[in-house]
Amino acid sequence: MSTINLRVWLIIPDAEAATVKNTLIRRMGCGDILADVKKERLFSIDVDSGDPEVLAKAFAKELVNENKESHKVLIDTLSFEGAYVPVKVSLHIEDGEAISTRDRLRNRLGFKNVMSVKKATIWKLYLKGDDKERAAKEIAEGLLINPHKDSYEILSLAEDASLSR
């Protein structure tokens, strides 16, 4: 079993990330802890056979729109680079879009080795100050999630281990 992590980001301006940044700074008083916000989509696809590198290329063809997006593939690991804190937000209730993506890959496109698909948004928070974990937690709980349907995880830089939930 391998997990193919597909990190996908816009190469055109990301209006949603800009709105989140504006709201945090202008409306929620985060100007002294937040410098910038960027966003990625993350697909984590479990496959039970096949060459993950080859499969990843095929999946990217289906899940990434190269006219406006770029992507990076990571097999059995998830790491991030750069001076930001990655916050992973996903649904803790049933994720219909993830199920639809799995069904599309398995049933319509014939990738019978796809066992499951998980989908998340990675918010890349460029934070100021020393206590970045606390700042990320405040931002996640203040805006990025609704706890009645979303959960979040603060991922450590260049690591696949989480700092907190």
Binding site: A15, E16, T19, V20, T23, R27, L143, L144, N146
Partner: peptide
């Protein structure tokens, strides 16, 4: 953006 109603609720 983010989810329905989330941004407006902060105005």
């Amino acid at each position: 953006r983010i989810r329905a109603g989330a941004i407006a609720s902060k105005e």
